[in-house]
Computed example of a mutant assay.
Amino acid sequence: MPEILVGAWESAQPGSNTTLAYRFTGDGRYAYAGVLTYPRSEQKDDFYLLKTTAVGKVDIDGQQLTLRPSSASTTRKDPRFPGDDYTDRPEPLTPKNFTWAVADEVLTLTGEDDLQFVFLRAAS
């Protein structure tokens, strides 16, 4: 694992309702959390929540980064449709491939579909 990748990374744009975070370890493991929230009404606890987590191994080959999850799950809570909610539903353990680059404490992951994700180094 390149030392420059080791640590915590977070993507949270001002005004966004989504936060994505990765933690990479020196021995080639990763943890991921993605959270989407938005209010459903003016009531205090009336929020839609979609949370995805994954852990696994990272393979690096030059600028190619492959995430190989060993576990992954999603939780959904929607106060408008509680009958459709679920907690820790297992997700497919499909590897994800990215091209990666780090410059000035900013990590860019570009997916095979050319979608880019930008992360700032977070305090560990």
Rank of each mutant, 00 (worst) to 15 (best):
K96L: 13
S11E: 10
P82D: 00
P14D: 05
Q13F: 15
D78K: 15
R76N: 03
T75K: 08
Q63R: 14
K51L: 15
Y32L: 12
F81P: 00
V102R: 04
D85W: 12
L67A: 10
Q64F: 08
V102Q: 07
A54I: 15
D85P: 08
T99G: 15
T18A: 08
G83E: 07
L120H: 13
R121K: 06
D104S: 10
D46V: 12
D104A: 14
D45I: 00
L49F: 03
P92A: 03
P95L: 02
S16L: 00
D104C: 03
T18N: 02
R121Q: 04
E105P: 01
A54T: 10
R121Y: 03
P82E: 00
L49W: 02
T99K: 13
P39I: 00
Y86H: 10
D104H: 08
V106M: 04
T108S: 11
T75S: 13
P2A: 06
L93C: 04
G34S: 14
S73Y: 01
L20R: 12
L65E: 04
Q63A: 12
G7E: 01
T37H: 01
A8H: 07
G56E: 05
R76M: 12
S73T: 10
S73M: 08
S11M: 11
G28A: 12
T18D: 02
N17R: 01
V55Q: 06
Y22W: 14
T87K: 13
P69E: 00
A72S: 13
F98C: 05
P92G: 01
V58G: 07
L5N: 15
S73F: 09
W100I: 03
Y32M: 15
F98H: 15
T87R: 10
A72H: 06
A54D: 06
S70D: 14
G15T: 05
D85M: 06
T108V: 13
L109E: 03
R76K: 07
S16Q: 00
L5V: 11
L65P: 02
T52I: 07
Y38D: 01
I60S: 09
D27Q: 05
L107C: 12
T18H: 05
R80M: 09
D46A: 06
T25E: 08
L109N: 14
D78P: 13
L115H: 11
